[in-house]
Design a binder for these strands. Structure first.
Lengths: 220, 220
DNA sequence: TGTTCGTTACGAACATGTTCGTTATGGTCG
DNA sequence: CGACCATAACGAACATGTTCGTAACGAACA
């Protein structure tokens, strides 16, 4: 007595990588990323968790796939000034990741390579070209521009509950109490290490990277 | 009939954060990081997994603590040239993380703040000071020097099994097949995006960051 | 039409991280 | 000396990621 296959029902089409990611994004928007577990997602698709592994290697890859969908929302609109354009695009990208830091974590390991990610890279390359940055430097540099933004978002991937405030305060204390004998430079510049707002630092970081990319020729 | 408490035995001292991390490092060196699970570690200490949570917030924090111990091995020896010194220290740091990429992952989120990490930061600050880099720029820059090294290591945190070779080849293919219409810049510079050896790119990245830090004044 | 075979789906099982309520321990107070 | 109590330790339970062996399916083929 074979049970009626669930795949038969027309309303629930056969499993597809596309369909799985669709459902994952939908689930994320309705219940939050933390609810997007293999089991919950499978339930949504009226199947078992194991079935998903045919189309998705693991949970990280699923997250990366979700991220690529979200990347469609990055603002790639042209800007009058190329440098300002880089700031805008990267801030838009960072804002997206900050909203879902655990996606950033996955993105670090399994770099996405979907169409939206390619479009993002392409736009960055275009902006650097507009700034007359030599080709190879620009190509290498794009990696680090994105990596820095991604890593900064990933840093906030734990405990949205526990204030970043508290953690930051603790770092500040650790630095302030650093012995001048053991850590002379640290002691002297403790204040500088924690100065500035996150947004000031991010903006500076992008400028810093651009300047570095321009100033540093690649070998051969 | 109260069972004899395991804490009584003199050979196994009462639980301590120090002792837990010690055991974790020992376990890592004998059986590999992947074997350092809460249960296995508890077994090593002749207790239950739940007991560890009194001293360690979660598995990530444990990893971060292990990393700080390992950080003692980073080569902080003074170098004749400050710039070369930065290269050496950061390569030493990166080598360490490459040996245990999952530690790098943890380090990204829960930045370590143990003595060895502080010594590392202090050394970097000293080298930048030797290069006459303005104080605040140096302070902000150190964060990104370390973040880049950490993130680069973290990127390799999945599947040491599956060749990075294969993944890289796939990326290369994706880029090569990128439509010239949809992704003009990407198409044009596909070769540059994957050129260079990892070590060439890392070296370039450090130079690039140093140049950027020097060239970019902080606000106020 | 009946059989074979590769693929897809899936239930059950295992290892892990984490939490909860309970128990034991050792010191303190009456 | 005996009752009490804060804290450490723990066993059991739960949710999750992942794997394995098996069953259903459908297409190619005899």
């Amino acid at each position: 007595m074979p049970a009626l296959s669930r795949r038969e029902r027309p309303a629930k089409p056969a499993l597809t990588r596309e369909g799985i990611v669709d459902a994952a994004v939908r689930l994320m928007e309705s219940e939050g990323l933390q609810r997007v577990t293999m089991r919950r997602l499978a339930q949504e698709l009226d199947t078992g968790a194991a079935s998903l592994y045919v189309y998705v290697a693991n949970a990280y890859e699923l997250h990366a796939a979700i991220l690529d969908r979200l990347l469609a929302r990055v603002d790639l609109a042209p800007a009058p000034d190329w440098r300002e354009g880089l700031h805008r695009v990267l801030r838009s990208y960072a804002d997206l990741l900050f909203a879902h830091p655990s996606l950033a974590r996955s993105a670090l390991s399994l770099r996405p390579n979907g169409p939206n990610y390619l479009a993002l890279v392409d736009t960055l390359l275009g902006l650097l070209a507009a700034g007359r940055v030599p080709a190879v430097q620009a190509a290498w540099g794009v990696d680090y521009l994105l990596q820095t933004a991604t890593a900064t978002a990933a840093e906030h991937a734990v405990d949205t509950k526990r204030d970043a405030e508290a953690e930051w305060q603790q770092l500040s204390d650790t630095l302030a109490s650093a012995s001048a004998d053991d850590y002379p430079h640290l002691h002297q510049r403790a204040a500088d290490l924690v100065s500035g707002t996150p947004s000031e630092r991010s903006y500076w970081a992008v400028d810093m990277l651009i300047n570095g990319i321009i100033a540093t020729p690649t070998p051969h």
